[in-house]
Design a protein around this nucleic acid. Structure first.
Lengths: 114, 114
DNA sequence: TTAAGCAGTCATGTTTCTTTGACTAATTGA
DNA sequence: TCAATTAGTCAAAGAAACATGACTGCTTAA
């Protein structure tokens, strides 16, 4: 069995021009961890729990809307988990998941080509 | 020595809010291999030498301008090399470099999270 | 010589991403 | 009670990415 550049079996034939055409499964993952703020958010999340306003301060030049959207995307993809902490000054915490932790290997590998 | 999520030593301090702030070196690489056409171009390049018009036909829905820009970016980053072939019907060839070949591992790793 | 293929560029338009500013609503400290 | 902090949302503007159509200049096959 032949595997393509994306580590996927080559089976599907959709276009005569593309004998073994197949969408790259890495693309959605690349899209998930790319963008203006997500790599840095993931990096900070790997160091410890995040809180919204503190995160904003840690990302100079960022804004509520972009950070909020990034957090939601990462949460939807189970890379971060969000929980309301019913403590002293009632707040929200974003924590990196196991999946998120293991996805950091992509960053380490990518940075070896810098 | 402490290494951050991007596999980089933590030294720089730029902001009081960021005791160990540092740009993630994976970001430019992620940017280089992301986008609408670059992953697929890289995949095709891994299978063999590319020629402009043939590549366009192999990327249904693409266009000259986008593909041309993608090829230039990848060439500038030494992921592809371009050469004029002085043969029979004089043409141009884009070939994946060693660096490009080894960068395919990023796609394989990323696709394992799909 | 004429048309078709190759390898593009340029100007423009559209779509998507990112930022800005105003606003909400609950909690907490002085 | 007043101001600040936390955690956002919404609409709109601006920037960046991507697509379209017209055009160039060279080569080759009929």
């Amino acid at each position: 069995m032949v595997y393509n550049a994306c580590g996927q079996k080559e089976v599907t034939t959709l276009h005569h021009d593309l004998p073994n055409y197949m969408e790259c499964p890495a693309e959605p993952i690349l899209k998930l961890i790319s963008g203006k703020w997500k790599p840095q958010i993931l990096y900070l999340a790997s160091k410890g729990t995040l809180r919204f306003n503190s995160l904003l301060r840690q990302l100079p030049g960022s804004n509520k809307q972009s950070v909020s959207a990034a957090l939601r995307e990462l949460e939807d993809a189970q890379v971060l988990s969000k929980k309301v902490v019913q403590e002293k000054p009632l707040h929200i915490e974003y924590t990196i998941t196991e999946k998120g932790q293991s996805m950091l290997s992509i960053f380490r590998l990518a940075s070896s080509f810098a």
